[in-house]
Design a protein around this nucleic acid. Sequence first.
DNA 1: ATTATAGGTTTAAACGATTAAGCAAGAAAT
DNA 2: ATTTCTTGCTTAATCGTTTAAACCTATAAT
Lengths: 332, 332
Amino acid sequence: MKKKPSLKDIASKVGVSTALVSYVLNGKMEGRISKEVASRIKEVAKELNYRPNQIARSLKTNKTNSIGLLLADISNPFSSQIARIIENEADRMGYAVIIGSSDEDIEKSEKIIDVFLNRQVDGLILSLPDNSEHIVSNLKSKDIPFVLLDRYFPGIPTNTVAVDNYSASEDVVKHLMEKKYKNVGIVSYDTSLVHLNERLRGATEQLNGHSKVGKVRLGHIQEDVESSIDSFLKSEPSVDAIFFTSNLLTISGLKYLNSKEVIIPRDLGVIAFDKTDAFDLFYTSITYVNQPLPQLGKEAVRLIIQAISDNKKKEQIFLSAELIVRDSTSRK
Amino acid sequence: MKKKPSLKDIASKVGVSTALVSYVLNGKMEGRISKEVASRIKEVAKELNYRPNQIARSLKTNKTNSIGLLLADISNPFSSQIARIIENEADRMGYAVIIGSSDEDIEKSEKIIDVFLNRQVDGLILSLPDNSEHIVSNLKSKDIPFVLLDRYFPGIPTNTVAVDNYSASEDVVKHLMEKKYKNVGIVSYDTSLVHLNERLRGATEQLNGHSKVGKVRLGHIQEDVESSIDSFLKSEPSVDAIFFTSNLLTISGLKYLNSKEVIIPRDLGVIAFDKTDAFDLFYTSITYVNQPLPQLGKEAVRLIIQAISDNKKKEQIFLSAELIVRDSTSRK
DNA sequence: ATTATAGGTTTAAACGATTAAGCAAGAAAT
DNA sequence: ATTTCTTGCTTAATCGTTTAAACCTATAAT
């Protein structure tokens, strides 16, 4: 890979200093530079196919124009879709994105953040795993610009972009009540992640006793979803609708209901928080909470760029999600 | 964000030159440095929580230890899964990964590659869109280390990692013949991408006339899949099995078959190239070609690292895929 | 006594850009 | 005629590393 042309190469070819080349190519000192020299420089730059070395520029300016994006699990469609949105949006703003996936592991998160920081990213967008408050306080104390995405920690004032999980779950329940479901089973994670617990809380408080809850351990999703469903169906009175609080839970649940030949919505109503393409293959269309991914991504990028330029202000943004009503909650 | 400690800070605190600090921290000149000074330096480095500035290091060494990964579509599970594998593997080898998604767009691909190169990635792993041979020859002529992943261009000798699509499709057809399917419909893309056409060729040649082919335009997937299926089912004799040559095509197809109440495998056999989680929600398990994603990813990383250190040799690797037989091709 | 050798450390240039400050020469102002 | 301004450009320092080369000092070899 032969050496790329540098400012120096242009400078010596044109017969001027590197400084002048830099000024011209960056459009600084407009009017202070003679038209002829300026155009000659641009000409030679094009001719040599000059590309500024971002590394050198970064070293000098102390800005890399890159942001680190830490996702919980990049193979989850929620993550990969938002990654794509963030990437596009960041690119529009002149930033490159380095992605890492923590697989819900705290140590891996720390390691990835470390890699990001070693590479001098200007800021971080983070979806952190359970029990990782210390990471947040750590970054805060170092005054590193970052934005929490999707998952947040209410105790600590930080830039945050998330969905209003509580209200969305309230809407879920309201819809179920309108449809006259009487006994709702809620499948939720066994976690202390606030965004997930808000989904649970929004539903249970609204249901006010008329609910059963199944807790699913990460790493035992299929197993625990199945036992939750079993207990829902065995209970007296039996559950007539199930609210799955994440797309993964929904997939596991529907798979199991398929195998048990429980027909949706004839035998049971089903409603999901978040969605995936997989729903398309289910024989009944699924009623679900649609998270505003494009807005989430765009706000996250906006906030991180704001934080990079001034890390004083902390903004918390909660976007509302929309309930998309389909057939899985339509009683015959 | 207050300034991070540099070599200089350690040097002045210990009372030595930055050079010595650099030598110690990099483990160079072992034995030439006194134990006491060395340990004092390490001590202070730890105390200040020193992290080498990769930017400065990169400028000097002309290596960023990063690779650019261009995917066709990060929201496709094939892409996102392989992204995760490549990321993990690259990390193990001390490389960071910058990801870009082209959405099958040539100009966007060029732009992303440009961004990668401006950021001085050491090498590229690329899944390129249709009709982008010129990108490949361009990179070759500049002697930039890169590896083609999944999609390849046989005319041009390059480092390549892909699946043996032809053989995999042959296996598909052999399986269908064993199962006594007589009239196979193949749903394929209308493209000149070799890897996709190999899937088609492997099947048609093996079927040797006993096949019907539906071509699907990118950007009109659902529409064209539906018309293909319609023509398959209307034809005389009617098709008794459909081979979908990608996961997206399969999803569109199954969705449509659902809506037409065609029951799998009672009315029709279905076999897919590649898979997605979505298959889990279909009432019948799907027979599919399983691509060896972990090996693909690992080989790609191995090759790119090899190319970075020496870009003379070009290696082409074709991995075989495995047919996973499930219920969608089991006639009753 | 002189010269080598080895050990331990420093010096200084370099990577490729940015940018404040300086300089030269002609034009305008006094 | 001298000062001041403008215009157009250069100088040189700097960012944080790496690394070849130089430099001491003390000891070993001759």
